[in-house]
Design a protein around this nucleic acid. Structure first.
Lengths: 192, 192
DNA sequence: CGCGTAATTGAAAAGTATCAACACTGGTGG
DNA sequence: CCACCAGTGTTGATACTTTTCAATTACGCG
């Protein structure tokens, strides 16, 4: 459930320490703060050094859908930079977050001067497509109980970090349905 | 609903005509044939010259979910090539399809020798992530009627190409539900 | 014509949302 | 110390939506 991408962080942390690293800045976000805002332009990419964020889409009918939780090593904002579009989701810090950030112009310069970054990003993006597509398919094709079990396995370690509402928004269901599904998992035999 | 990517096709058709184009082959698929098979390795990328394909995930519970319909100019198989993974879906020709294809080794050589291809692919992938994520969010957050209307607008032109089952699989619902939703759209006031 | 596939429809069962009430927690100010 | 409040979590009852199952019709094609 939480995405991790070791290669990218290694690249940027090396870069940050080198003479060419002047374009790599660091920034810190407190719990609950937004790193990227839905509907706004994005002026730099972020790479998470540590912490956990949620990528959350606010639909115009008032519902929130959590695209994904991102953690250490993941890149944010690259979609908007590459296609010059506004962001389609909010990215909010669930824990305190430390991140590198690089503005658009410097980021393109890095792509020019570091060939290996191109392939790292191609791989990262290919992974994002794959994961997003697989999750969409599974959530559409399976009942709540199945998706919930998968989610609980992945989130077991950090269970305290995620509110029930977050879990419901991730599964695309209401809080009430989440609670019922959980109690049914715990042996209550689903009265008919 | 149908994805199109003009830049990529222009790049490969130019390349195909040039002296460096020996690595770009062409292939033709009849309606109903599979271009990529779920669970199998992918040995080359495809760029659609013309025709329409559906990218369909076969879940282990027997349900099929259509990820997307791809048309002219879209690239296929790049996810699997970049991350060296087996394919997570079948890609099936809905109409007759003509496509360029380039094997993995040659594809990487092109990436080395044509810097501009890197950025074209980064943009293409960023777009795929975005579209996939937005669709997942919308389908999870809205009732069938809403999603159906959006779908019908996009597919109106080629309505005859898509079976009802395809439309249902795209929406992640059963054929029965699709039929009810359609008749309710056409004025039948949803008997209670 | 006859067969197989696609499309349609009804009725019952299963799943999910909505609404509303209530419990638990931590912090704030009187 | 306690009353109060806001946020989070829990639970029940009911209404609504979607699936499942089954039966029937429509259509293309050898």
């Amino acid at each position: 459930m939480i995405r991790i991408n070791q290669e990218l962080l290694t690249f940027f942390s090396k870069l940050s320490g080198s003479s060419a690293g002047s374009s790599v800045m660091e920034k810190r976000f407190a719990t609950g703060n937004n790193i990227i805002n839905q509907g706004k332009h994005v002026t730099s990419v972020f790479i998470i050094k540590n912490g956990i964020v949620k990528c959350i889409v606010n639909e115009e009918n008032g519902r929130d859908f959590i695209q994904e939780f991102f953690s250490q090593d993941e890149i944010l904002g690259e979609l908007e930079i590459f296609n010059n579009t506004i962001s389609f989701c909010n990215v909010e810090a669930i824990t305190e977050v430390e991140a590198y950030h690089i503005n658009k112009k410097d980021f393109y310069a890095l792509l020019e001067n570091h060939r290996e970054l191109n392939i790292l990003l191609l791989r990262a993006l290919a992974n994002k497509v794959r994961d997003t597509a697989i999750r969409a398919s599974q959530q559409q094709s399976h009942p709540i109980a199945y998706n919930l079990q998968k989610l609980l396995v992945f989130s077991a370690d950090q269970a305290r970090l995620f509110s029930k509402q977050d879990l419901a928004n991730y599964l695309g269901i209401t809080l009430r349905s989440l609670n019922r599904a959980i109690s049914e998992l715990n042996g209550v035999p689903k009265e008919s």
